[in-house]
Design a protein around this nucleic acid. Structure first.
Lengths: 182, 182
DNA sequence: CATAAATACTTTGATATCAAACTATAATTA
DNA sequence: TAATTATAGTTTGATATCAAAGTATTTATG
């Protein structure tokens, strides 16, 4: 039997063609029947598509930075794992999976690669022999300043030209929508 | 030689561990040296991570809707292609790739599947025999009302409990950041 | 006009990803 | 205590995805 849900994580468009089609001369994408005076706002809304694009652009940005450091072989989720390990010395596979929102079987592969590249190593868990801890090597630890700088650069770019009020308002509104989608 | 950039589209975390780690008792993720009185806002910023999560949640939402319609076999980007075709009768492979922000070789596979499932068909382009047009079948066309409804549902959920002013402000700010990342 | 360059698309190879099935260990329950 | 259930992790199989190389056709250039 074929499993269908495995495609979950590769949905990137959210049916979000509105923005691009607008460039081609089309604008209407969703017809809302709202009685709000702002109904027209949603009528041509492509915000979720833009969010998807921002996400992809952020990834491209970060990959470019990794490449600049010669870490060409690492994928974004490898970076997520390292970022998690900067905060905690020992993390189990399941904890990593929860933190980076990936399947445990995916984490198996990701950690294996990080091990192969010398960024992390495994340590046995004496109190539960089913699990083991993933830890940073010195090579892995040495990446932390770089990661902090790159993250700072990312936000600096994202917020370029925005006032403090705009930034804080945006964070607030993103939080609301995140909560709505949760 | 191994190609490194192919991982572009699967970056979903944007080093965004802050939000999750906060749940585990950690909050600081990025240290900014801003002189702004709002520097603390960015100091614990995980907005881009939240954006990634919203994107993923939107995908999960849409996949659930597709599944409810028995379209289990279709991936998100297939939906993007259909959404594009609802707006234009004939679209070339390259145009689709541009619209959905995917590689042309990826689009080849996606369209092939849509053809196999009977949603689209190919028509030869008389004026340029290198390319061909992708068109909706009747089965494909019949999906449009459903897609509109699902998109409406998605936005309704995302904006739940938000005022018109908040929605319009959010759209404005998302637009700014999108532009910054472009 | 003939050759070179550009464009449209496909094929090939690699990787991140998920789900389902599997193994091993721990926890619970009868 | 024995049997069942739950949990941690891996393996297997499938798919979306990209890059690079390849084919075919069109456009540009000499």
């Amino acid at each position: 039997m074929v499993c269908q849900s495995r495609i979950k994580c590769v949905w990137t468009g959210s049916f979000g063609i509105a923005g691009s089609l607008r460039l081609l001369g089309k604008s209407e994408i969703v017809e809302f029947n709202l009685t709000s005076k702002y109904y027209w706002i949603m009528k041509t809304d492509n915000t979720i598509h833009l969010i998807s694009r921002i996400h992809e652009k952020a990834n491209i940005f970060l990959i470019g930075k990794l490449r600049g450091l010669g870490m060409n072989e690492l994928a974004p989720s490898h970076g997520d794992i390292l970022a998690a390990l900067f905060k905690r010395n020992e993390v189990t596979m399941t904890e990593i999976a929860t933190l980076i929102h990936r399947d445990r079987s995916t984490v198996t592969q990701l950690v294996r690669k990080l091990e192969r590249k010398g960024y992390v190593f495994s340590k046995e868990n004496a109190s539960d022999r089913r699990s083991s801890f993933v830890c940073l090597t010195e090579k892995g630890k040495s990446l932390e300043p770089f990661f902090k700088q790159v993250t700072k650069d990312l936000y600096t770019r994202a917020y370029s030209g925005m006032t403090d009020e705009e930034i804080s308002r945006f964070q607030q509104l993103v939080g609301k929508i995140y909560h709505n989608m949760d």
